[in-house]
Design a protein around this nucleic acid. Structure first.
Lengths: 205, 205
DNA sequence: CCTACCGATCGGTAGG
DNA sequence: CCTACCGATCGGTAGG
């Protein structure tokens, strides 16, 4: 309660999460070992096991940490105009990652483990549902305000979610110079909004 | 040259590919070992190493095998009408997998390794380019025939590719009872085709 | 192709 | 939290 500005005191869990992140980023999930995490942590493997009994437990906690960070990038926006608000939200979800591409790669690796680890699957389902909820809310406001047509809001949210996940996967996999993944997806999302959510009866172009 | 109908003779490579597929499906990429592949193969680990010197070499060959199978599901269709032809192609890419969901899960796992293994990355880039080529060809025919507007064909192909990959990833990750992934994606693709590729000037509904 | 084996590395623990 | 160690398993190889 005194000071957590330095946070170099007993913030072991946070340090281990960050160490796990670096180890995952540098070596990949398939080569993510307690030893490598411990090296990044700067202490022994026993020190890691002191805070997390098993590797499974550590990984589940790490996924919570990772998805929490992702959720933070999807913050509610302070814009009232529904159309611009959705636009801003899509920007956050689909603008070139640059800085946090490593995070997306790490997330893809853990995603691919979901079919084998129920602890992962349930967390990703929760994350998917959360982002869809944010999208639904924004779209519903737009429909209520008359900015969008009276579309199937739940479907529209799932559709945009598909675009987001498609961009994330393609970007991580096709990681050459100018990966088109997010650029394409952002443009696709725009087309979807202006051609499907807004079916402009008031004038055909 | 005599008979390959029985194919139980010296088809070791094919057998090992199928054994690898089963081992990957049952244990996941992170737990894919030569020993497990050998068990599925029905012979010793040395027998596997006899045909593939290293695990890396085996995995690269397996990815070729896997992507080849995927390409086979994207066969050219014998329909002339461009609109119905694109529709049929999207069906093949986006209809509920059911039978080959295991294949998609396996592919997602290997996708997630692309950032760490250049041999994987280049193969996935090739596969992405191939499917985009097929999509572009069909859309170009539609534009030429006047069925579609004069859209940016390359972008349209990339956009639909994003939808396909998004559906594949979401389906594998959100693997609960009625995963909406492919249903949502198929509907999204339809909306994209009828609202963006066909901007019906001839009458605003 | 097999048996038998190699050194290396894994997750985890005992004892302090 | 550390040192030291455990049994288990890994990819790969020798010798046949």
């Amino acid at each position: 309660m005194a000071d957590d500005s330095d946070s170099s005191r007993s913030n072991a869990h946070g340090e281990i999460m960050r160490a796990t992140y670096r180890a995952l980023r540098d070596h990949g999930y398939a080569n993510l070992t307690i030893k490598r995490i411990a090296e990044e942590y700067g202490k022994s493997t026993a020190a890691v096991h002191y805070h997390y009994d098993t590797k499974d437990e550590l990984l589940a906690a790490f996924l919570d940490y990772l998805l929490g960070r992702f959720k933070d990038t999807v913050h509610e926006v302070e814009i009232i105009d529904p159309e611009r608000r959705l636009d801003s939200l899509l920007d956050q979800l689909l603008i070139e990652p640059n800085d946090h591409r490593d995070l997306l790669i790490a997330m893809l690796e853990m995603r691919s483990q979901a079919p084998y680890r129920e602890a992962f699957g349930e967390r990703f389902r929760g994350s998917d549902a959360y982002v869809r909820y944010i999208l639904r809310t924004v779209i519903e406001q737009g429909v209520a305000a008359g900015a969008f047509d009276d579309v199937d809001v739940d479907h529209a949210a799932r559709a945009l979610m598909t675009v987001v996940v498609g961009a994330q996967t393609r970007d991580a996999v096709l990681n050459d110079d100018e990966s088109d993944a997010f650029e394409t997806a952002r443009r696709l999302a725009d087309e979807y909004v202006s051609a499907v959510l807004i079916d402009d009866d008031s004038g055909a172009n």
